[in-house]
C-alpha cells in the first residue's frame, strides 16, 4: 500500500512538471497557433541556469527565480526568431522552433558538457504521508505548480494584459480592431512559455538530474499533457499532466521503468486519435 502511495505522490509531482510544460505549449499556441517544439529546451536551460547560478554562490530562491526569468528571456528570443514579427507563416514557425530546440541542445552541450547536473532541492527530513516517504522537494514542486497555475488563471481572467492574450486566442481579427498588437502578444506568450518551461526544469532538476538532451522527452510529455486540453485549455493541460505523470509512475513501479516514455507516446497517440475522431464527428 505504501508503495502505491509512493508511486502516486511521485506521479503527481512529475505530472506537475508535465502540466507546467503543457501550459507553456498552451500559452504559446493559443495566441500564435504555433506548436513550440523548443518547449523542452526551456526546461533544460532552466535547470542548467539554476545550477550555474547556485555554483557561483547565489542563494537558493534567488538563483531559481533568476533562472526562470532567464528562461523567459530565451523564450522571448525564440519568439522573435520563430514569429519574425508576424511575417512568418505558422507552419514555418513550427519548423523554426524545432530547429531552435536542436540548436539549444548543441549550445547546452558546448557550454556545460555532457554530464548530467543536479543541485540540492528543498532541505529537511522526508515527509511521511500515509506510510510513504517523500522528499520535501516533491511537495515544493506540487505546491509551486498549483500556486503558479492558479495565479496564471487569475492573471488571464482579471488583468488587462491577460484578457488581451485571451482575446487574441478568441478572435485575432477583433483583437486587432480594438488595438491589440498581435505581434507583441505573440512575444509575450513565448516569454510566458519560456518561464513556465524554465520553472519546470528548475523544480525537477534536484529530483531527476538534467541532461543536455533531456528536452525531447520533456517536450513529448508536455505536449501530450497540452493535447488533453486541445492545445488551448490550460485546465486540460493540468489534468493531462497529472494523468500522464501518475500513469508513468505506476507503469514504472509495477511493470518496468523503461516503459515510462512508451506510456507517454501511447497516451499521446490515443489522445490524438480521439481528438481527430471527435473533430470528424462535430464536422459531420
Amino acid at each position: 500500500m505504501s508503495a502505491f502511495i509512493d508511486y502516486l505522490l511521485v506521479g503527481i509531482a512529475t505530472g506537475c512538471t508535465f502540466a507546467l510544460l503543457g501550459t507553456g505549449f498552451v500559452a504559446i499556441h493559443r495566441v500564435t497557433r504555433v506548436v513550440n517544439f523548443a518547449q523542452g529546451a526551456f526546461a533544460v536551460l532552466g535547470g542548467f541556469f539554476a545550477e550555474t547560478l547556485l555554483s557561483h554562490g547565489l542563494p537558493h530562491g534567488l538563483a531559481e527565480v533568476l533562472a526562470v526569468v532567464a528562461a523567459g528571456g530565451v523564450g522571448l528570443l525564440c519568439g522573435l526568431v520563430a514569429l519574425g514579427w508576424g511575417r512568418v507563416p505558422v507552419m514555418a514557425s513550427l519548423v523554426i522552433t524545432l530547429g531552435l530546440s536542436i540548436i539549444a541542445e548543441a549550445v547546452t552541450l558546448l557550454i556545460w558538457g555532457g554530464t548530467p547536473i543536479s543541485y540540492p532541492g528543498l532541505g529537511g527530513r522526508d515527509l511521511v504521508i500515509l506510510g510513504a516517504q517523500l522528499q520535501p522537494q516533491y511537495l515544493l514542486l506540487i505546491v509551486v505548480t498549483v500556486v503558479v497555475l492558479a495565479g496564471l488563471a487569475a492573471w488571464f481572467r482579471w488583468t488587462n494584459l491577460g484578457r488581451a492574450l485571451t482575446a487574441c486566442a478568441s478572435n485575432p481579427y477583433a483583437a486587432r480592431l480594438v488595438g491589440i498588437d498581435l505581434n507583441r502578444m505573440g512575444l509575450l506568450a513565448f516569454a510566458l512559455g519560456g518561464m513556465l518551461g524554465g520553472l519546470a526544469g528548475v523544480l525537477m532538476t534536484p529530483l531527476i538530474p538534467m541532461t543536455y538532451d533531456g528536452d525531447v522527452q520533456l517536450a513529448i510529455n508536455g505536449f501530450a499533457a497540452a493535447i488533453c486540453g486541445g492545445l488551448v485549455n490550460p485546465v486540460g493541460a493540468l489534468v493531462g499532466g497529472l494523468v500522464l505523470g501518475i500513469g508513468e509512475q505506476m507503469v514504472a513501479g509495477y511493470w518496468q521503468a523503461s516503459a515510462e516514455t512508451g506510456v507517454a507516446l501511447v497516451v499521446l497517440l490515443g489522445l490524438l486519435l480521439w481528438q481527430a475522431l471527435r473533430e470528424r464527428e462535430t464536422m459531420s
Binding site: T166, L177, V178, I180
Partner: peptide
C-alpha cells in the same frame, strides 16, 4: 472605432470582458 461585419465578438469571453477589451486603447 469599427464594428466589423459579422459582429466578431470575443465568443469565449464574457460580455463584460468584451466591453473592457473595447477600452484597450
Amino acid at each position: 472605432a469599427h464594428v466589423p461585419e459579422g459582429r466578431q465578438v470575443f465568443g469565449t469571453l464574457s460580455v463584460e470582458d468584451n466591453l473592457l477589451l473595447g477600452g484597450w486603447r
